[in-house]
Design a protein around this nucleic acid. Structure first.
Lengths: 352, 352
DNA sequence: TTGTATGCGTTATCAA
DNA sequence: TTGATAACGCATACAA
């Protein structure tokens, strides 16, 4: 009787091919196979072919476990976020998860409690437990200088997603919120709208500022003068946006189009418009931001800005590899292309 | 110059203690340390103490990598799902991710394209790539016999979350949809409601049937006769529910309460009620199901049923360990407790 | 009750 | 351009 009782079970003939199997079949050494996998340059075309054929024949895939064991660097990537149920975070979560999967990496997550004064300890515990040495930082924590310092001290390298400002030694990945906002306003203008309002997000988020700037820039460039009463703050929350919408639509000269800083709030605008007897988009055009699930569950479906979640996540995961490889400390910022999703909630301006 | 350029970088004195370090400090063999970690029984109290103290002093944590390498079984758990943006899946994703994190396991995911006729190949590729030997199956794919057969053939063990029916050789984890529905109806009855309608989900999901059954059972037990016109199908979709709500509220004798099979549809009901000039909950009580984000973003916040996501995920992840340990083939079904979240969308029946 | 030696799959050193 | 072999940290057969 063995001690623990869980001896080797996998003995079913369906075992995976190892590097040794490949080497044998190809008639070369394991090191050569290793070289092929790692794109070593000085390999004769002949052996390269042999090895590649053997790998294909055996349907070989390297064991990331053994690789980790040998190289010492963890394949795990850490991510800490606040509210997992926000549409933004849900999309980002999936995208990052998928990117990790595709890159044969693993994701370790921790729920971050902003109200917890002891959050630094929570992060340290997370690092101890998971042993991650690479992290993805998302808004709004990605802007915490304290967090940056903690991670630097622990020699954890990190990449920032949509930070307020770049951080020395870390690369950032983002989309161009301002440009996207300008494009959305131009979409309105192209439909003949002139009275265009904006419901802004939470003042603590940079995205709020950028989106508002884009809104203002586009109007100015089109020669449409800004009206103070056309900009209100909904703090990214559905319920505040209900009031904002009511306020805007009760103006003496109500807008014919509203550019809303996120989809949740845009949904609230549609809801309020309906309640007030306005049809969307015939009487009022509404556009959101983020392309979160809600944008396609409500009716009419929301015109919105699609963040390039998949690309952002992929870039984030890949950047970790580059960092490891080159061990560099440049702080480059990568801007990825968004998409304007024109759907049913925007239409021609009503004939006044 | 070394070949690949990425030599040992980690040389910063911040290295982790290994089992050997612990053994040396404790003055015992590595095997003994190993025994301590794995709760081997026959160890003298004295050596036990010594080892434990050494582990504490070195802040030792075993390397899961090396352990995987040695035991052969992967710490990765696979999960395949369809729509990542559904509220249900978003919550489940986070819960599973967190459970994996806590259990020092890793999650590998794949987006499942139901329209892809070649899905079997997609799954096989996923298995090859990730080498997972444990999977979590979620609705609705968890009911696919083809998938079960494929995984069994590949010797991948799996656990089912909320399946239609148990599967031999796999354990299932679920909540009691029927009971929860009965409780919600009883909540309505307790508030004095007698005219209670139901908007059902998509006919392909078991949850739809179970929730409807619970609705009917509770009414019958309370001696309230069922009305055919009070049950309509919204197929879990917001936009269908808009029509359902309008239909129900236009009846000669409209309901004073509506039990809706998910939160998205419940949101649509609230929206429609508002449009028709009905106040929630003064004129109409509305309850949803799932406790998805939308239930707390709309106003009034939705009374709903909270699935025990965290517990379900934890149980799923833990069950994999049990399976590995005992290599058993029982198909047990674990039912976890839900929570009825009473919020602002339900209130006393209006005095008729 | 405890210790020694071996191997898991990969990459790195050094030699050919 | 290639190959033999050690080493990563851990768990186990076998020995004591």
């Amino acid at each position: 009787m063995s001690e623990s009782g869980n001896g080797r079970i996998e003995d079913t003939g369906f075992s995976m091919a190892t590097i040794t199997d490949v080497a044998e079949l190809a008639g070369v050494s394991v090191k050569t196979v290793s070289r092929v996998m790692n794109n070593y340059e000085h390999i004769s075309t002949k052996t390269l072919k042999k090895v590649e054929r053997a790998m294909a024949e055996l349907n070989y895939a390297p064991s990331s476990i053994a690789r980790q064991m040998r190289t010492g660097d963890s394949l795990s990537i850490g991510m800490i976020y606040g509210d997992p149920s926000s549409g933004y975070q849900a999309r980002l979560n999936h995208a990052v998860l998928k990117a990790c999967s595709d890159a044969r990496r693993y994701l370790a997550v921790e729920l971050f409690d902003e109200k917890n004064a002891d959050w630094q300890k929570q992060v340290e515990d997370f690092l101890d437990r998971t042993k991650v040495t690479n992290m993805i930082l998302v808004p709004p924590m990605c802007d915490s200088t304290d967090l940056h310092e903690l991670l630097t001290r622990r020699q954890v390298s990190f990449v920032l997603i949509s930070p307020s400002r770049p951080v020395p030694g870390a690369s950032s990945i983002a989309m161009d919120d301002r440009k996207a906002s300008r494009e959305m306003i131009n979409h309105f203008i192209g439909l003949g709208h002139k009275k265009i309002a904006h419901i802004a997000g939470h003042p603590d988020h940079v995205a709020t500022l950028l989106r508002r700037q884009g809104y203002e820039e586009a109007l100015q460039r089109a020669g449409i003068s800004l009206r103070e009463e056309y900009v209100v703050s909904g703090r990214f929350r559905f319920r505040y946006a209900l009031e904002c919408a009511e306020q805007l639509l009760s103006l003496d000269e109500p807008p014919t189009a509203i550019f809303v800083a996120n989809d949740e709030m845009a949904a609230a605008v549609v809801m309020t418009a309906n309640r007030l007897g306005l049809r969307v988009p015939e009487d009022l055009s509404v556009a959101g931001f983020d392309n979160t699930p809600i944008s396609q569950t409500i009716w009419p479906e929301l015109t919105t800005v699609a963040q390039p979640f998949a690309e952002i996540a992929k870039a984030a995961v890949e950047s970790m590899r580059t960092m490891k490889r080159t061990n560099n400390s440049v702080s480059e910022t990568l801007i990825l292309e968004h998409n304007i999703m024109i759907r049913a909630s925007t239409g021609p301006a009503p004939k006044a």
